[in-house]
Computed example of a mutant assay.
Amino acid sequence: MRFFGREPVVVLNALSAVLGLVVSLGITSLTAEQSGAIVAAVSAILGAIAAAMTRPIAPQAFTAVVAAGAVLVATFGYEVSQETVGAINTLVLAGLTLLTRAQVTPSSPSAPTGPAGV
C-alpha cells in the first residue's frame, strides 16, 4: 500500500514534521496537543487501512481508530464519554463482523495427540 508513491510511515512522519513546524512557528492556532492528536488519528486510520487489506482482519486496528478519534475530538473541546466510545466500538465491531463473516470459517477441534488418561 502506498500514498503519493511512498510508504504510509513516510507520509505519516512527513505529516508529523509539517504539523510540528507549523505549530512551533505559530502559523496556526493549533496547539501541540491538537497536532499530536491529528497525527495519532491519521496513524490509526492508516493502521486500519493496512488491517483491512490484511487477512485475517485485525479488529483491534478499528477500535484504535475509534479511540484515536475520541482523543482527537476531545482535544478540540468536545468531550466524549466512555459509554459513547464503547458504543461506537461495539457498532464498529458489529459492522466488521457482518463484513468479514463470509471470510471466516469455524475451526474444528483437533484430536488429542497423546494417549488418553496420561
Rank of each mutant, 00 (worst) to 15 (best):
F4M: 13
F4L: 14
F4Y: 14
G5E: 06
G5T: 06
R6Q: 07
P8D: 07
P8G: 04
L12P: 03
N13P: 00
N13R: 15
N13M: 06
N13G: 04
V18C: 08
V18A: 15
L19Q: 02
L19F: 00
G20L: 00
L21T: 09
V22P: 08
V23E: 01
L25P: 05
G26Y: 04
G26T: 05
I27A: 08
I27V: 11
S29G: 07
S29T: 07
E33C: 00
Q34N: 14
Q34S: 13
S35L: 05
I38P: 00
V39P: 03
A40N: 10
A40K: 13
S43N: 14
L46M: 15
L46R: 04
G47P: 04
G47W: 01
A50C: 07
A50W: 05
A51T: 00
A52F: 10
P56N: 04
P56H: 05
I57Q: 09
A61E: 14
F62C: 05
V65E: 05
V66A: 06
A67Y: 09
A68R: 10
A68N: 11
A68C: 10
A68Q: 09
A70E: 09
V71H: 09
V71D: 11
L72E: 01
V73T: 15
V73E: 12
V73S: 05
T75A: 11
F76Q: 06
F76I: 01
G77Q: 03
G77K: 05
E79F: 04
V80D: 03
V80S: 02
S81Y: 12
Q82C: 05
T84K: 14
G86P: 12
I88E: 09
T90I: 07
L93H: 08
L93V: 14
A94L: 13
L96F: 07
T97F: 06
T97E: 08
T100K: 05
T100A: 13
A102G: 14
Q103C: 06
Q103H: 13
T105S: 12
P106N: 10
P106M: 09
S107P: 07
S108P: 02
A111L: 12
P112N: 06
P112D: 06
T113Q: 12
T113N: 08
P115W: 08
A116T: 13
A116E: 11
A116H: 10
